[in-house]
Amino acid sequence: MEPIVTKGLTKRYGELFAVQNLDLTVRAGEVYGFLGPNGAGKTTTLRMLLGLVRPTAGTVLLNGRPPGSQPSVGALIEGPAFYPYLSGRDNLRVLARHAGVAARRVDVVLEMVDLSGRAGDKYAKYSLGMKQRLGVAAALLKDPRLLILDEPTNGLDPAGMADMRTMVRRLGAAGCTVLVSSHLLGEVQQICDRVGVIFRGRLVREGTVAELRGGADLRVVAAPLDRAAARARELLGAEAVTLADGGLNLAVGADRAGEINTSLVTAGVTVSELRTVERDLEQAFFELTGGETDVG
């Protein structure tokens, strides 16, 4: 049974569709990256997954059951939120009682997020990073098999971000299904098995990171460049050849590198550089969203 399945999930505010007809499937044991520009509908989707926001249409099933009835789901949505007059430990104690979790689990999760030393301090005195770690600790209280994290590295310093990535990877390796929403594409690229891109409330692309990035290009630096370009167009077709930064970008796989090199040399071209260039997720993301980082 898939941990998360949505069918036709829609949320409308008046005339505005925050989420529209979203079909999302997150498979057991994978770390799924949920990407989209600000305002694309990521957090609304996550809130619907957890029963905080009621869909206008469509269905959500978490482990085959509707939201809110799950014994083993943890979540951190849109930043941490706790009682400022309580200590970090007391906040978790309160939440453990609400969740029906044994009090001894509190110290376990505090240890997991490296907050044991400051657990007695008032939450109001915590730094942003400590608040974020406490939020993750709360999400882990129920020892979840499904973890939903909305921008989990917000407010963390580089070391904290690295720790968070390690933790997410470790949870994924241990069989926990993780849905991570993030605007940090590099982060998603590092930790996620599959990625879904949401734009203007619709899921515009879904696949593995490699699928989304597409194949690698070949980069050629050669002289004379015009002769090299002409020869490459003859060989590969005009649409596969782009002049850029004093060289050629060739939209073909690395398996054709030898053939291209031979062809250029035979044509009297001196090849000084021939290498593969990996496209990163950021390029693919911007192509899908038209370069928008905010949806107005």
Binding site: L50, L52, P71, A75, P80, A81, H98, A99, G135, K142
Partner: peptide, 25 residues
């Protein structure tokens, strides 16, 4: 009202208890 102000409704409710159970408590 503070549960709204501090946004703690979401923290409590994402842990699983129903809204009415928390309200009754």
């Amino acid at each position: 009202g503070s549960e709204y102000g501090w946004d703690t409704w979401k923290t409590v409710l994402t842990l699983g208890p129903s809204r009415l159970a928390v309200y009754a408590g």
